[in-house]
Nucleic acid binder design. Structure first.
Length: 591
RNA sequence: UGUCCGGUGGUGUAAUGGUAGCACAAGAGUCUUUGGAGCUCUUUGUCAUGGUUCGAAUCCAUGCCGGACAGCCA
């Protein structure tokens, strides 16, 4: 199925009209935090357009604010993008040779800068290639600023931040011209150079565009283009003490990379006139990039702002950016979600300009349907209760055949050991069951998956009255192919052989928040779900000993799990990705 | 009472002047050695009021509701 939305419609029109040589998008995160599922939506859009229209999508660090950015974040962004687009759009990923800077050329007798992307299957090896960095363009952006000053379209202002706020006015009240607005070009040039030389302390001067202090659009009221920050930058080191603002750097970065469609979220809609003003005022020789906006993703039962996610990390409310409960790409990955599921989700939610809240059920459905087809089935008992099959002799072990994945015959089958002493799930036995309960009960029958039908003959309790053991008989003719194998029993439950079972830590993750809109108002942290993580030691069938890193399983009748290394005591650790749909819990809740 | 952008079932989206469709959710049934998956069926919608038109979710007007914007953040 080919996705379609208003942005793709625009691109498609441009392609049929031959407006551009090649479609060129970009994904421009600021390296001030980890990527989350909202970024995944944007990645799928930008790379999706590139692959559907034979274009390229540059990965670019939008790193113009050294105070907030860090290499830890650029490394995580690189890894997360690579993981998400792998085997889907790697050949559309635009990178550049390490250290390469924009090349100067002449276009129609006018000087011009361009930094072309390297893309194609070769880039997947990433040998000597790196993402684009807005900070690589500081020299060009500085030159463009000077060009604006020369045209009388930018000036150095001495207003303090407080004064500037006053002069700006408000949305329904026009602003006032700064007293420094009419400085001469010469003076502006001199002052701007001295800003760059480091003569002035932070915050004392800015370079501003000269547009219109009475504009109804606040972003046209002489926006700041450059500010002074005597701060080391993660990519340019100590080379600069003035840094361009987003609005000035972004449109120029797009231009320098030959971007055709600059796609961003709705809150930048009011910036678009400024984006266009800067590029048009500079009189650039090549076709200009255009900005298009779509609604960012809001998902139920989680928060999406980097500020809030950062807070969860810094206040140790989660174990890190990649905590499996986080909506970050790395968190979802550790949770066991696949790139395919994420892309499928992105496809299903569509692209519009309507600001809605997407039901988590849409994400959960994408995860389940993906895992249903790929996850190997295994038997594991989370909360064990002992079962003794009295008509199976002690010491006897039988190997039974179990299907690895009923959705995928090519996954084959495996052997699982059956013996006299087993574990079943505590939930699968009830002494006094409610109506419609069709698992084990005193005197009742149930099928052990892949094995025999058993009947509960005796319930053994401890001094406190808690059930500690069930004594059962098995219908030894009832396994697959046996004479009574087709007998109908209502319930089928999972089990493991007690002496063969291996221990594993299972981490039962649940929604991070208890309400659909934790950030609707007040303190979002008071809606944190206290039961978002429960750890247990489970009894697992022995084949799980061979589980590989990041391998995904369905523990039958329970949930999907992914292997996430070992816990502190050396036990294999499985993260629960998501439970199976549970019609019984709905049914029993009705009663 | 500024500017810009939006309002289609419970939720998210499609229909671009011509049968309001899809997905998720919800409900009913069927099947089942996973109360899983699959399959079948069902409920629920064009913000309002006018106008243009043979015909309006779509175009126009007015109103209502929601969002974004007043960082030397992005």
């Amino acid at each position: 199925m080919k996705p379609t939305d208003f942005i793709r419609d625009i691109v498609s029109d441009h392609v049929s009209a031959g407006k551009y040589k090649q479609i060129h998008t970009r994904f421009p995160p600021e390296p001030n935090g980890y990527l989350h599922i909202g970024h995944a939506k944007s990645i799928c859009l930008n790379f999706g357009i590139a692959r559907e229209f034979g274009g390229i999508c540059n990965l670019r660090m939008d790193d113009t604010n050294p105070a907030k950015e860090d290499v830890e974040y650029v490394d995580s962004i690189k890894a997360d993008v690579k993981w998400l687009i792998s085997a889907w759009a790697d050949d559309r990923l635009g990178l550049k040779p390490k250290g390469q800077l924009p090349a100067q050329s002449d276009v129609n007798g006018q000087p011009d800068y361009l930094l072309e992307a390297v893309s194609g299957p070769s880039t997947t090896a990433e040998t000597g290639l790196e993402p684009f960095y807005a900070s690589d363009y500081f020299p060009q952006i500085f030159d463009y600023a000077i060009a604006l000053v020369r045209k009388g379209l930018a000036y150095v202002d001495d207003l303090t931040p407080e004064e500037m706020e006053k002069y700006r006015g408000s949305p329904d009240r026009p602003g006032q011209d700064s007293p420094h607005r009419e400085r001469s070009v010469q003076e502006n040039l001199d002052l701007f150079q001295r800003m760059r030389q480091g003569e002035f302390p932070d915050g004392t001067r800015t370079l501003r565009a000269k547009i219109d202090m009475t504009s109804p659009n606040i972003w046209l009221r002489d926006p700041v283009l450059y500010r002074i920050r005597h701060t080391e930058h993660h990519h340019t080191g100590g080379a600069w003490c003035i840094y361009p603002m987003y609005d000035f750097a972004h449109c120029l970065s797009d231009y320098l990379e030959g971007i055709t469609h600059s796609i961003c979220t709705l809150e930048f809609e009011v910036h678009r006139p400024l984006y266009d003003w800067i590029l048009e005022s500079l009189g650039l020789p090549r076709p200009l990039p255009r900005q298009y906006e779509f609604a960012r993703l809001s998902l139920g039962y989680t928060v999406m702002s980097k500020r809030k996610l950062m807070q969860l990390v810094n206040e140790d409310l989660v174990s890190g950016w990649d905590d499996p409960r986080m909506p970050t790409i790395s968190g979802l990955r550790r949770r066991g979600v696949t790139p395919e599921a994420l892309r499928d989700f992105a496809y299903n939610i569509g692209i519009t300009k309507y600001n809605g809240i997407t039901d988590v059920a849409v994400l959960e459905h994408a995860i389940r349907s993906d895992l249903n087809h790929r996850a190997l089935r295994r038997l594991a008992v989370l909360r064990p209760i002992k079962v003794v099959i009295v008509n199976v002799p002690e010491g006897e072990v039988e190997q039974l055949t179990a299907v690895n994945n009923p959705e995928d015959p090519s996954a084959g089958s495996r052997q699982i050991p059956f013996s006299r002493e087993l574990y079943i799930e505590q939930d699968d036995f009830m002494e006094v069951p409610p109506p419609k309960y069709f698992r084990l009960r005193p005197g009742g029958e149930v099928r052990l998956k892949y094995a025999y039908i058993i009947k509960c003959e005796e319930v053994i309790k401890d001094a406190s009255g808690a059930v500690i053991e069930l004594r059962c008989t098995a219908d030894l003719g009832s396994k697959t192919g046996g004479p009574t194998s087709s007998r109908k029993v209502k319930g089928t439950i999972h089990w493991v052989s007690a002496s063969h079972a291996i221990d594993a830590e299972v981490r039962l993750y649940d929604r991070l928040f208890t309400v659909a809109e934790p950030d609707a108002g007040g303190d979002f942290k008071k809606f944190l779900n206290p039961h978002s993580l429960e750890k247990l030691v489970a009894k697992c069938e022995p084949s799980l000993r061979e589980a590989g890193p990041e391998q995904r399983f369905q523990f039958e009748r329970l949930a999907y799990f992914v292997l996430d290394g070992q816990n502190a005591s050396g036990l294999p650790a499985f993260n629960r990705t998501i439970t199976l749909k549970d019609t019984w819990s709905k049914e029993s809740a009705k009663a």
